[in-house]
Design a protein around this nucleic acid. Sequence first.
DNA 1: ATAACATATCGAAAATTATTGATGTGAGGT
DNA 2: ACCTCACATCAATAATTTTCGATATGTTAT
Lengths: 113, 113
Amino acid sequence: MGCVHAKNAKVFKAFCDEKRLAILELLRSGEKCACVLIDEMDIGQSSVSYHMKILCESGVVDSRQEGKWTHYRLSESGSKYAAALLILLTTPNPTPNPDRCGNLKSPPTDGLF
Amino acid sequence: MGCVHAKNAKVFKAFCDEKRLAILELLRSGEKCACVLIDEMDIGQSSVSYHMKILCESGVVDSRQEGKWTHYRLSESGSKYAAALLILLTTPNPTPNPDRCGNLKSPPTDGLF
DNA sequence: ATAACATATCGAAAATTATTGATGTGAGGT
DNA sequence: ACCTCACATCAATAATTTTCGATATGTTAT
């Protein structure tokens, strides 16, 4: 249960860091190999690699190996999933809601948490 | 320019932490006062307050003062903004894209960064 | 096989974020 | 005025994340 929150949080780690947003911006114009990202970002090679791992784990970025190069690109399905999840997480659900302070228990469920 | 990334990252800080997702889940069933959130979450009062500040700064949550209570709820406009931003950040843009490694310069722009 | 290259991974240091307990603030109640 | 309650803020610490430099892995070229 808290486990699902951890998993969902992973998806949004892609977007909660400045550097990763800069990488995503670079990828918007199309697939890039790591060497290009390393050139464009002003952080070291191992840092870029670290961020790419987080981006891939979020599902928002896919990677493809071609010889000794690794190419990264936006994942359409991962991006759609992230958007759908964000919308779900912020959509009110119809669980009845006591209006007095301090006497609520029922955590809402809709089968997705 | 990197400044915009920092600002955008703030929006998604709401979603990249387990505890904050748990709080958002609680808010899906309706407005809650801080005291309820403190009861439900197993972290101290000041930690909840810390997370609520981040959630409000993201724009995804709004707060309302009522006497000595603070009530928090999902912001519909903030949530929509976050969703629209996520979609924008992951939508390919048509900037032409050289396909050889190591010789790209042009950062893409569409007036939104 | 050796060498050169691209990138991943590791270990330690640096930076940032989260938690706690204490204190501050502002609203009500007596 | 004084007290209490609800919450914010602060200062210190703990935990996590990010960075760097070094090394490991895997690929291609010679």
